[in-house]
Design a binder for these strands. Sequence first.
DNA 1: AACTCCATTTCAGAAAAATTGAAATATATT
DNA 2: AATATATTTCAATTTTTCTGAAATGGAGTT
Lengths: 293, 293
Amino acid sequence: MLKIEMLRGFVAVARNGNLSDAAAELGRTPSAVSMMLKQMEEHLGEPLFETDRKNRLTPFGIFVLDQAERELQHFNTTVRAIEGYANAVFGSVRIATVPSVAGTIMPQVFSRYFNSFNQVDIELRDIDSQSIVHELSRNRIDLGIATLTKHISGLHSQVLMSDAFGVICAPDHRLARSADPIEWEALAEESIIANSLSEHIEAPASRQLHTAARLKAHNVVSILGMVRANIGVTLLPRMTLMAFRPGELAFRPLADESARRELHLLRKADATLSPAARLMEQQILETVASLQA
Amino acid sequence: MLKIEMLRGFVAVARNGNLSDAAAELGRTPSAVSMMLKQMEEHLGEPLFETDRKNRLTPFGIFVLDQAERELQHFNTTVRAIEGYANAVFGSVRIATVPSVAGTIMPQVFSRYFNSFNQVDIELRDIDSQSIVHELSRNRIDLGIATLTKHISGLHSQVLMSDAFGVICAPDHRLARSADPIEWEALAEESIIANSLSEHIEAPASRQLHTAARLKAHNVVSILGMVRANIGVTLLPRMTLMAFRPGELAFRPLADESARRELHLLRKADATLSPAARLMEQQILETVASLQA
DNA sequence: AACTCCATTTCAGAAAAATTGAAATATATT
DNA sequence: AATATATTTCAATTTTTCTGAAATGGAGTT
């Protein structure tokens, strides 16, 4: 049978013009190369070289050399692609995160590991937590970072970080005068701007505030715009603010530390990640760990 | 090292969805295939299948399957090309012959061996003997059929056939009345149309006739046209006439049998022919042999 | 034409790699 | 949990490839 090792050996001999150099190049003895060539010619039923001195090819040899070089080239490319993919040098990763993460953690990950992702295609989307779960189970993304309230079957999740809620108000707001933790009671007289994150705070005091809230907004930029215009104050995890200029808005932690948002790193439970995605997963974890240190 | 046998094995398993069937397809025991797969995964450092039941690929496995199938396809194509060329199924042959052979022997060869040359490119040119030698030594043709007077170094030649000269005249010419061999003396009073072939007849009587000849032509069609118009008679090897309708012209052999043209089958002496050219050479010899039988 | 040098081939044994069959283990199905 | 089926492991065996030494074969030289 015609084997790729034969092609490799033949090409080496044809290019070197003699057995000994080719053998050295291949890391074999001339004897081994000679036998391999003999076997190849016997299989093909045609001489590849004009003489024993392997410096002149027959027309058949010329043809085979051309074919063999193409084949080896192609094989090399395939091997490099496979090994490159295995080592996460090539490949693609599709990630979806909640918007605040997309604007805070992910840029950190990319700047930290810029080099590792040289030739990896990365697709980052920011969507809401529910859509992330949906996209994951549909196999439309490889990794997700979302707020998870309950475990979802078919998904593997690990806590990435826990982000405490706080009160965000304009810098000239009366609440901005102190930096101490705020009790729920202190908010009773405030105009609260509800949002899709604060809605999920389970504390009864928070529920009450939200029932009373006259304004609810979803888009963070618009919420913060309203806060800055002193239309009211809002409750958001600290991280949400990180993407905006410091000083522009004031943040005061809540005294009730149970009001938090848990960010989970998600992937399908039953399926293996691609090497590049696995590397990305690891690097997200490392980045978050180093940010918390 | 990643070997093509690994790719073959992996593709078989991935396509069958289980080891046993793949092993049967490959003509190996499941054990052998299992070990090969293990070795492949160890080399790559990545699992190719999700579970031991080889029915679900990892993303990496999906990628490798695609790459491997392409590679095997390419390898097969290469092997087929090489083996096809070796067996003269593919390839090309460039032949040049003197015009009379191109119009007589070569059509016979092609009609006899039509099937063998299915996918072989054949290029047939008809040029004069000297050019054939020239083209051969320049490696512009693989085979030549020409009249050779002396041995030419660097060329291998073998006599293909020997063709006796005869007198060609119009059917109503007085020489056409008999079919017996003609003596040189019988031509003394004839108007001879000299031609590039008859010029080379070495017999002194022929030399004399040629010196006296008032007309010389090169193109066979025009020579025969003149003969038919009874402008004169000419001397040509019998074969030259074969391409024309019998009865249109009369042929009388020469009594002097030494007046002949030797047709040689030529090829380069030091170089091996391509398989297709060698097959063609053989088939030319066989055709001529059978024509003479 | 015989000789010399150098490369290649041949040969038998050695090493490496692949394969097997049987037993063990793992996975699905009932 | 039990059974049936599929895969893995292991050590032994077979096959393949490789090596080193000797033989052979050309090419160039005297």
